[in-house]
Amino acid sequence: MNKKRIKIIDSIFPLIGLLITLLGLAVLAALLVDAFLDGHKRLNLSFFTSYPSRKPDQAGILSAWVGTVWIMCTTAMIAVPFGVAAGIYLEEYARKNKLTDFIEINIANLAGVPSVIYGILGLGIFVRMMHLERSVLSGGLILALLVLPIIILATREALRSVPSSIRAASYALGATKWQTIRFQVLPAAKSQIFTGIILAMSRAIGETAPLIVLGALTYIPFLPTHPVTLSEKFPFLHVSFQGFLDPFTVLPIQIFNWVSRPQKGFLADAAAGIIVLLVITFVMNGVAVYLRYKSQKKLS
């Protein structure tokens, strides 16, 4: 090959790359514009404060969005401690042997299992065997299992990216391994771990299949019991965990139901629901990008 040809190829490739990137963005933009045109009229306060209804213009997503918040909090409370702890163990403590290899391969495999399989697993174990019913807790547990591999992998990746000079310095000052991890490594890796957690959560928020298999409901005219209510007696706050055992629905299920209805009005409701879900996902991803940006700046 002569020099000129190499140069041409060199300048063509970024052009192709740019075109492909723009194509992806164009599809996304078309999707957004379409959803917005169909749904923007339904986006008002009462859409957020009404329960579903047979009348499309009165239907709302109250039970769906509150259910989504519940499920997300439950998922995070379960998946984050387990995922981060497992990541720390595998990266910092686990010896390299066959068992560790086996665990690592399986975590990578789990990350690729279709989500509906987790739903069937959850139906068998959490609903039928552990009698947790079709509750917020069952849903949260299933989604936690689903995102656990992502969090573990992200945590390991984050720990690995901490420069070894930081560890060496800590040991040189006489710190134990735990002190090193707790006070040096984890703080340095924090933003990156958060990025992983948020990306995992924004995957969980759009999941429909496992929750439908679980038997999450579609029409539900009440919300899970609120964990904190005011009471007249000391200490004036009543804390309840009943909400975790209450039935729920989530945004993707509500959207799924609306999309399949014959009346055109429900399609507008579905589009409005999609906008809400997209905005939440965008915000979460935005926070993730910001944190990553911050952590890169700090380390370099």
Binding site: R134, I212, G215, A216, L217, T218, Y219, I220, P221, F222, P247, N257
Partner: peptide, 11 residues
Amino acid sequence: KAMVGISGTGG
């Protein structure tokens, strides 16, 4: 209050 699911007739 009544809550309604869509597991399908068989489900």
